[in-house]
Amino acid sequence: MRPLRALAHVRTGDKGDTSQVSVIAYDAADYPTLVRALTVERVRRHLSSLSVGSVQRYELPRLGALNFVLERALGGGVTRSVTLDAHGKTLGAQLLDLEIDDGTAG
């Protein structure tokens, strides 16, 4: 088990109350591990302390990336939220802490 940050980095964006988090493998060989480990349900559970609405996952194999669209994830929108740092950058950083099985355990 390793934190996701050992295999990938993230790019994020916010629009209204929706956040997008793209998880991008450092090495294309690790992309299948990301596809297997980062299911919609697993991402939703990992972010369960937040009141995220729907979560959609889009696979971008040629980029070695997964894009997650998180609806109702920003407390009404970045400019309306009363929570501190409820932006995509924070969600991306939290997601990078997720422990995943990368198949390297003996």
Rank of each mutant, 00 (worst) to 15 (best):
H87D: 13
T90E: 13
K89G: 15
G103F: 14
G16H: 04
D85M: 08
R5Q: 04
A65V: 10
S54P: 00
L34R: 14
H46V: 15
M1Q: 02
Y31I: 03
R2H: 05
G75W: 06
T12G: 12
V78Q: 07
R42W: 05
R11P: 00
L38S: 05
L34H: 13
P3M: 12
V35C: 11
T104Q: 07
L70D: 02
L74T: 13
G13E: 01
G106D: 06
Q94Y: 09
M1H: 02
V10G: 04
V40F: 02
L50G: 04
D102M: 07
K15P: 07
L96V: 14
V10H: 09
R44S: 09
G92A: 14
R5W: 06
Q94C: 10
T39G: 15
A29L: 02
G53C: 01
P3C: 06
T79F: 00
Q20D: 00
E59I: 04
A73Q: 01
A28M: 12
A6W: 03
Q94M: 11
L50N: 13
T104N: 04
E71A: 14
L7V: 07
S51L: 06
R5P: 05
D101W: 11
D17L: 12
L50D: 06
L95S: 11
L7W: 08
P32A: 09
G88Y: 09
G77S: 06
G53V: 10
V52A: 07
A6D: 10
L74Y: 01
P3G: 00
T90W: 01
P61R: 03
D102N: 09
V10T: 15
R44T: 01
E99A: 04
S49E: 13
K15I: 07
K15H: 07
V69E: 00
T90L: 07
P32W: 03
Y31F: 11
L34T: 11
V43E: 02
D97C: 09
L84V: 02
E71V: 10
I24E: 08
G76D: 00
D102K: 10
M1R: 03
I24W: 03
L84R: 15
R57E: 08
I100V: 01
L34D: 14
S51D: 11
L98M: 11
E99F: 01
I24D: 08
Q56A: 14
D85C: 06
L96H: 09
Y58V: 15
